[in-house]
């Protein structure tokens, strides 16, 4: 058994002519949070469905919580929690009944299931709602109940497929808090998202998928670093054109003026920053702020997916005549 809570090798899956997954490999250490980041149709849900034993891959292997998803599916099912992209709670049951059923199906027994249902309703701020039929729930309440349901048996590995898509900002931040709490307790989480800020906020590692392929992966910082160097940004007290020009000239040929700031590539990171500070002292221009700026994940995302997206189909290997 490896130290990876989730390990997938070259997963592929097609639906007729649609190649939903072409080649996806993942290694997610136990206790960490991995975000699968990608646009609609990138293959996120397909990946999650394969890893949660709902779908068979055409090709490739995967182990979840140390067990093979194909040959030891029941062992995997005993150890995972899944919150799918679509609601899975029964509208005709109350929140409490829904949780209790999942507990019973997880073989916790009736008494423990009821007790866990009570605990989780409390944890997710649904105590009053617990006695209500789910059909009366708001979207945010449903998502939280769904998340609660996937935690009933204290899973080792948790899968969350777009847990905040379609939620309003308040419900979204409530969901973030709930997810952070889980992570603090050591659960391994694989979540999918279309939102960069969400991945950045919640994840230790980000895997960017596009058209069924992994196009980039790493920590949020590594991803930013791989895509572009940081830049030094000098902000003046006011937008005095003469002063701005003076600073730009001092910072070199690649410097650009934006509003009352001047930014220039900082090839050496902090060292470059120190040099700029020395330079500015000599110039004697009134400075408001100096700092290093990393490229945003948005830029990372559009850069990597753009590169792939603009790719014309890979030319077939040349065959000697």
């Amino acid at each position: 058994m490896s130290n990876f809570a989730i390990s997938a090798q070259h997963l592929a899956r097609s639906f007729g002519e649609t190649h939903a997954l072409v080649d996806v490999s993942l290694d997610i250490p136990a206790g960490s949070v991995c975000a699968l980041l990608g646009r609609n149709g990138a293959g996120k849900t397909t990946t999650v469905r394969i890893l949660t034993t709902l779908l068979d891959p055409d090709d490739g292997h995967a182990q979840v919580a140390g067990f093979d998803i194909a040959s030891q599916a029941d062992r995997v099912r005993e150890r995972i929690g899944v919150t799918g992209q679509t609601a899975t709670m029964d509208e005709l049951l109350t929140g409490h009944e829904n949780l209790e059923i999942i507990g019973r199906f997880s073989h916790l027994g009736a008494a423990v299931s009821r007790q866990r249902a009570d605990e989780l309703l409390q944890q997710f701020d649904l105590v009053d709602a617990g006695r209500m039929l789910v059909k009366k729930y708001s979207g945010g309440m449903r998502r939280r109940l769904d998340l609660a349901a996937s935690l009933i048996a204290n899973p080792e590995v948790l899968f969350l497929d777009e847990p905040t898509t379609g939620l309003d900002p308040v419900a979204r931040s409530e969901m973030w808090v709930a997810i952070r709490n889980l992570v603090a307790r050591g659960t391994t989480v694989l979540l999918t998202t279309q939102y960069l800020d969400e991945a950045d906020q919640l994840a230790d590692t980000i895997v960017v998928v596009d058209r069924g392929l992994v196009v980039a992966e790493g920590t949020p910082e590594q991803l930013k670093a791989s895509i572009g160097r940081p830049s030094v940004v000098v902000t003046l007290v006011d937008a005095d054109p003469a002063a701005l020009l003076k600073v730009r000239t001092a910072l070199g040929a690649d410097a650009v003026i934006r509003g009352r700031s001047v930014s220039a590539p900082a090839a050496d990171g902090l060292e470059s920053l120190a040099k700029v500070v020395t330079l500015l002292e000599e110039l004697g221009v009134p400075i408001h702020e100096v700092g290093l700026e990393h490229p945003s994940l948005d830029e990372v995302f559009s850069a990597v997916t753009h590169r792939i997206g603009d790719h014309s189909p890979v030319a077939p290997a040349e065959i000697p005549a």
């Binding site: 199906f105 916790l108 080792e156 050591g186 659960t187």
Partner: peptide, 28 residues
């Protein structure tokens, strides 16, 4: 963190319990 310990049951017993719980759900 470990999964909540589940009482040991044979697979037949479990199957019967599962069927009972599913029936119960549909009756509710």
């Amino acid at each position: 963190m470990s999964a909540i310990a589940t009482p040991r049951q044979s697979s037949v017993q479990r199957g019967l319990i599962d069927a009972y719980n599913a029936t119960r759900r549909y009756l509710i």
